[in-house]
Design a binder for these strands. Structure first.
Lengths: 246, 246
DNA sequence: CCGTAATTCAGTATGATTTATTTATGAAGA
DNA sequence: TCTTCATAAATAAATCATACTGAATTACGG
């Protein structure tokens, strides 16, 4: 058996996209900087095709714009595709990580309650039951102190609600929520025991959706997100005594 | 003076991205179809580099995935970047236009009220005043029956609120709102005279933001979006007697 | 059944050529 | 002298064509 999780050496253009994307997101490559393709070739020791493909991708993300006779120009943040998964990751990896986290939390705060509301209006009986059972298992895992299982079910629950909204644009944000939840766990910003209220709220969301009570579903989901942010902020402030960062 | 709005012949790779993107969004190229680079070369009469750059871009949008020895495979909708401006346009141009419009309206319904709420908490005095004055001009244009001016100001108003939210991910969605508003106007789905209530609601949003009344701002903006959808649906149903589509 | 070779694509490299755009140039006109 | 405008030169991206590398799959032979 070969090692199951060894990335089989990513393609060169992928690496270059990564490098440039990170540098632009970080600000190392400032807006309005001009890059020339042939210098990128030499700096990164790759061929023109690789450079072209990479820059082309970054152009479509709004991070570059290539103009004849000028070069390819680094674009300001306003034109980036802030919803592109890669851009999100780059921003999370940059020094503006906290700003990005806040933006993502606010986005989540806008989307998830609305998704819950729509789910309550649209979810099939089956989907409703699935959500209720998911919430029950989540509740059990929370009370049983099984952190890994709790995280897994939490992610699955929120993905299920988003999916039940019937709006593909909402469904797609399950990746977002996933990143936020795992991010919180990885950085030790999660309380050892999930708050009882939070557990109950998940159950409330599920049963409201099952019963078609749109406004209750919306309200409960709003509380979940609010609590999430509050908890994170609280534990964050404990961890970070004045004078720290990163 | 040369004609000001003549596109200077788009680059070949751009055209190819467009063609393939449209075909995939439409479903002409179904998920799991396999494309080969050299056949694309011949079919579109372009060189290898053009094909590679185009497919690379579509890969980064999640619409293609290229695998060695296999070819490049068309991906299902779930993996597309539904927030990419190009993808949004392609979906709006496809036969699923109505579904996409609904999804976008629901997204807007989630984002804008939350943006108004945050704007109320964060907007500077100056930004608040600007909003109020913008709303006043909007109100005047609405009452004066100046449709073009009304549309222009409406777009500007919503963009300003999104910007005032302080969340760049929200700000970026001003393009979305713009497309929805202009789309409505272009398709004759706009009442000749904007409803008085709608005009008043815009004023309400602005003054709530100026005063820092987050919940009022949220509520008023919610009503605006609700009304927008209702109006569109109403006029839509009048235009489309039973048995029509397109 | 397993290991090896052949096959088949995408990935990379490189040289030559075309095209759009800016900048420089210069001639005609005020 | 200074403008104006057309024209030419320069530059870097865009395109084309070809060759070569490498990974994954299939076919083959033991």
């Amino acid at each position: 058996m070969k090692t199951p999780h060894s990335d089989p050496t990513p393609d060169l253009h992928t690496v270059l996209v990564q490098n440039l994307g990170l540098a632009i997101a970080e600000g190392t490559l400032q807006a309005n900087s001009v890059l020339r393709l042939d210098s990128l070739e030499k700096e990164h020791n790759v061929s023109r095709s690789v450079v072209r493909e990479a820059t082309r991708v970054l152009c479509s993300m709004g991070m570059l714009e290539s103009r004849r006779r000028l070069g390819t120009v680094v674009q300001p943040e306003e034109t980036w595709n802030l919803y592109d998964p890669q851009v999100i990751r780059w921003r999370l990896a940059s020094s503006k990580r906290l700003d990005q986290l806040q933006a993502l939390n606010e986005l989540r705060g806008a989307i998830e309650p609305q998704a819950a509301r729509l789910a309550a209006r649209r979810a099939s009986l089956e989907a409703g039951s699935d959500l209720v059972s998911l919430a029950a298992r989540l509740w059990a895992a929370g009370h049983g102190g099984n952190q890994d299982e709790f995280l897994r079910l939490d992610i699955e629950f929120h993905a299920a609600v988003l999916r039940a909204s019937g709006n593909p644009m909402f469904s797609q944000l399950h990746n977002l929520v996933k990143e936020l939840l795992t991010g919180r766990a990885e950085h030790g910003l999660m309380p050892h025991l999930p708050h009882h209220e939070a557990l109950q709220l998940h159950v409330d969301v599920a049963s409201a959706i099952q019963r078609g009570e749109a406004e209750s579903a919306h309200a409960a989901m709003s509380r979940i997100v609010e609590q999430f942010v509050e908890e994170m902020a609280e534990i964050w402030s404990k961890h970070h005594a004045p004078g720290e960062d990163s």
